[in-house]
Write a protein that binds this DNA or RNA. Structure first.
Lengths: 173, 173
DNA sequence: TCAATTTAGTTGTGTAAGCAATCACTGTAC
DNA sequence: GTACAGTGATTGCTTACACAACTAAATTGA
């Protein structure tokens, strides 16, 4: 934050520049970090919007579906318990139930009862689901490139990766 | 992306490592950028979730309201046309109509007809709205610090700000 | 001057999210 | 064995968003 110098009673003394908003910063935040945060959420909004538009225009499902399909793709046995999946895609449990409903309705995954705990169930990727993920990837990838990757140089990419992994890794601090 | 070396027919030759997902990268994307993107969206999801939780626990309105209140706070005359506001907060026009409805219902802003164009209307910040924004800020700020700022050193903050401003500035590329 | 087009904002409808309550089952204690 | 607390997932309800259709007003232009 740029300190600015204001005349008062004949002498100059520095005051915190407030944009007229009376904002004070708590421990761990300053003007630079606030601005980084705003750049962060704006870049997210703009990027996601562009990528979703690309998927929609290609007649493909939204990003949330890709996330689920990807998590299942990399999971051992192409299957995850509902709560594991919910955690992986950052969604409430009830939200996930409905999301999985839709994917199941589209034939991209199926539910399977767990042998060891009859309350639980697995979401299991179907062949069609794997195919859909592969079909979505090029469009998604183009979106990432277009709305994100191509604006960054290699050093920035390195810093972003490392820093943001730390941010999300902290999770429930 | 780490090239890996695979034996084939007695000779070694480098292949793109695929995680078994058959992913290929288009122009402008590579493995590092894909990972940065994933770190980016995960950090966003986790951060926003934490901040919204903080606001909710303090009995305050959600982040979307803050955005509107802030834009109006910094706007000349504490007023913006609906479409300007919609653009500023990255929301569809219809979405904004409802959001402004809610804020107006809560007394945080009021609509005012425009003198020069009788189709349009201003959203004008009320004193109560300004007060609410000031009340929300400390909680929001703590959230930013907790879920974002405090995990970053000053160099990272600088890089993030600059890089992400470039990303969102590109807008509709 | 007056129809045709464009623009500003709202409304109808469908979809997706979360919370809280619930159902179904497990594991534990008595 | 049976009650009971805890867990996994679903369901009811509410809220919020987007798209498309609409209303009203401004602008164009013939």
């Amino acid at each position: 934050m740029s300190l600015c110098v204001q005349p008062l009673a004949g002498i100059f003394f520095p005051v915190i520049e407030k944009k007229g908003l009376g904002q004070a910063y708590p421990e761990g935040l300053d003007r630079a970090r606030e601005e980084a945060w705003r750049a962060f959420i704006t870049a997210y909004a703009v990027g996601i919007e562009g990528i979703e538009r690309g998927l929609a225009e290609a007649g493909l499902p939204p990003l949330g579906w890709y996330d689920v399909l990807l998590e299942l793709s990399v999971a051992p046995g192409h299957r995850l318990r509902m709560h594991e999946l919910a955690r992986a895609v950052v969604l409430s449990r009830s939200g996930l139930t409905r999301l999985v409903d839709r994917l199941e309705g589209a034939g991209l995954l199926r539910r399977e009862p767990t042998p060891e705990d009859r309350r639980g169930s697995f979401a299991v990727l179907t062949e069609e689901g794997a195919r859909m993920r592969r079909r979505m990837w090029p469009v998604y990838a183009r979106g990432i490139a277009e709305h994100f990757g191509r604006h960054l140089d290699d050093d920035e990419v390195r810093v972003l990766s490392e820093a943001l992994r730390r941010v999300s890794g902290a999770r429930s601090v």
